[in-house]
Amino acid sequence: MTSPLEQKKIRIAGPSVVTANRTWDGAVIYRTAARNWSADLTDAAIVRNSDDAKALLAESVADDLGAVGAYIAPVQVDDDGTIAPGNLREQIRRTGVTIGLPVQV
């Protein structure tokens, strides 16, 4: 199987993070600067150019045991450093479904 690194050239248009799903339970996680994973987007390592993105993705994909399906996702970073998902898909992954669940957890 082709690895994500080989699938296409990596180009980013703005600040980005690496996100994946945690292997044992599938939860959404983000790669941190400390080469670990966090469920909190605010802990994510932010990359701002394609070389850094490629390097972050490479070391994320190498952790095959901890995470599944790592990829680069856009984020928005405000002047005060607040990070927010860069598109609706990532917003939904971060905050959950946009509908009321049939059973409230």
């Binding site: 292997t23 044992w24 339970d25 599938g26 959404v28 095959d64 399906g69 898909r89 992954r93 959950g96």
Partner: peptide
């Protein structure tokens, strides 16, 4: 074997799919 690292995700994916297990946005 997947959770112990004996199987990679590439190796495991076809096995989980044969048992109806997908990976979606938030979870399996």
């Amino acid at each position: 074997r997947r959770l112990s690292g004996e199987l990679t995700e590439d190796e495991f994916k076809i096995l989980r799919l044969q048992n109806g297990v997908y990976l979606q946005l938030h979870a399996y």
